[in-house]
């Protein structure tokens, strides 16, 4: 930047660089927020013609909330929402328990076979669920769990990524406090629960947020495992809703999307500081 502007006065050059910077940042922000605003506005439109009027207009007189009612008439929307909440919450809670305990064992305990087990964990990082989805479906089917929420919960509980992330963090904690606790007679479990966990809030929040986001958004597993509409999660539910209308009632689809996004937006804004810090630090922690 500076080389290109040397011929101008340096002050003018700096001003130009600043204007350009904000132009790029602003366009990027607009490109990301405008589609959401457009879909929210579409959810309030009375007709498809209005939804697709270009350039988009905002005429308060023609706005309607009827589309939201139509969503719940067409699909069991609140059921989808509840199912998504159950799956994401249970997977996240279970994953935090299994990952933190396993990570503690790998970071602090001495036992036979540790190297082999850890190598298995790291190796399984390379085998994503997309590869094993077929036998996973057969396992669930043999267990009689297909078409239940268990089929969406159980495969998510073990997380090699989560164990690795927390192990890295635990390894970085000072050992002094633990030694002191041991001298006071604390067992491994008490050391873990009273010393390690309280020092690991941010790392655990990172894993929790990444895990919840992933399972909240997943489309593949529910599509494979669930056949009853009533047991579907929100991502599939939206596709089902969109599939009901090939033409016409686009406002209803927009309303369905809006109903799926607004709660996420509220949580996102409420927990923004945590979410931003957690995601930002996921790179630093590995």
């Amino acid at each position: 930047m500076s080389t290109a502007t040397t011929s101008m006065s340096p002050r003018l050059g700096r001003l130009a660089a600043r204007v350009l910077t904000f132009l790029v940042l602003g366009i990027a922000a607009l490109a990301i927020t405008a589609p959401f605003l457009w879909i929210f506005r579409g959810a309030l439109s009375g007709s498809d013609a209005e939804l697709y009027r270009l350039p988009p207009t905002f005429d308060a007189g023609t706005l309607t909330v009827r589309n939201f009612g139509r969503v719940t008439e067409q699909v069991p929307y609140f059921r989808f929402f509840l199912n998504s909440i159950i799956v994401s919450t249970v997977v996240t809670a279970a994953q935090l328990i299994t990952c933190s305990t396993a990570a503690y064992a790998f970071a602090r305990l001495r036992f036979r076979g540790k190297g082999v087990l850890f190598a298995l964990v790291i190796g399984s990082l390379m085998i994503p669920i997309q590869v094993t989805i077929v036998p996973l479906f057969l396992v669930m089917s043999k267990l009689g769990l297909t078409n239940t929420l268990w089929a969406l919960i159980l495969p998510g509980i073990f997380s090699a990524f989560g164990i690795f992330l927390l192990r890295q963090h635990f390894l970085g904690l000072p050992r002094g406090l633990e030694e002191a606790a041991k001298i006071d007679g604390a067992g491994q479990f008490r050391t873990f629960a009273r010393i390690i966990l309280p020092l690991s809030g941010p790392s655990i929040a990172t894993l929790g947020i990444l895990c919840f986001t992933y399972w909240w958004n997943d489309l593949l597993l529910p599509l494979v495992m669930i056949s009853d509409t009533d047991r579907q999660t929100l991502p599939v539910g939206l596709v089902l809703l969109a599939g009901r209308f090939s033409t016409g009632s686009l406002g209803t689809i927009a309303a369905g999307i809006t109903m799926a996004i607004v709660p996420v937006l509220v949580v996102f804004l409420a927990a923004q500081r945590y979410i931003v810090q957690s995601i930002a630090s996921s790179g630093l922690k590995l």
Partner: peptide
Amino acid sequence: FPFVVSASA
């Protein structure tokens, strides 16, 4: 924000 919205939406 789009990162936390589901891919299907």
